[in-house]
Amino acid sequence: MSVTGFPAAGQKPAAGRRDPHPETVAVVAPHLARRPRTGGVSTTRWFTPWLLLAPALIWLLVFSIWPSLNTIRMSFTNAKPLGGAERFVGLRNFIDILGDDQVVGALLNSVVFMVVCLPLLTILPLFIALLVEKKLPGIAFFRTAFYTPVIASAVVVALIWTFMLDDRGLVNGLAEALGILKEPLPFLTDRWLIIISAVSLVVWKGLGYYMIIYLAALGNVGRDLHEAAAMDGAGAFRRFLVVTLPAVRGAMLLIAILVCIAALRVFSEVYVMTGGTGGAGGEAMTMVMLIQQYSRGFTGDLGYASALSILMFFVTLVPMLILARINSRSDA
């Protein structure tokens, strides 16, 4: 008998002792009850764990696995929203993608967007977290201020930025009034200025969210480590490098992965800022905008849009694998 009062493994309950789980025994089917027990706790029917898992499994199946499988299937067809004579087209959609200059442009925009966002949203929130983690009077105000943009709607924020960045908006008006600019900058019509504007918006809006993750990680860094490093003569910068950075490395990797995924999937910001057009010539269109363009409407090309989604999946996978590789090397 174990010290807990439960029978030890392989040990029968002592005769005359009350079973600690009478209700469990009561629901065990007779044919199962006759099985030799291998554990101390009485067994249940074999499907009990599956029943407990069922809600999550069904959710996963219906909202994740099925749509994913369906997307793969549709990418090899000429599927249309209204059905009709859907047929297998082999690799045609993927071959068409290779010759589609819109895809090349959108892919470049999405990758540039990710490459610019990644360092900004991985490093800046750490510095902000380091600033606001200090226990100073009124510091809660700054924490709240940095977090406030996170709770605002992306569409509403993008609309406000659109008004500010318009050729007659606040930014251009102010710059012209101060004599910095003679002509308004085409923030909303030039390809790279649109990308930069959208990156600025995403960074401004995302800083607070990633700051919170860093704050949680910084809270786990023992003060004694900093004190020990200080006693060894390490300055503030050295302590940041040898104590703080290694301690938040896990959080940093998580943030980098989240930023990569979010940046490659950017849609609302660019869509709203360009009025849904992707800028002149659709030059600033991102991959998700392109997928939306092909899939919408009564005659949308779901097969092609699905093939684009598959491409997008693999594009998203690349930075994930690189980051995982970097992490495993660091661990080694």
Binding site: Q102, T277, A280, G282, E283, Q293, G297, T299, G300, D301
Partner: peptide
């Protein structure tokens, strides 16, 4: 359809610019 008119408008915008 939407995809057609969007592409045409995008090309026209490039030409107008």
């Amino acid at each position: 359809n939407d995809a057609m008119s969007t592409y045409l408008n995008q090309q026209i915008a490039l030409a107008v610019r």
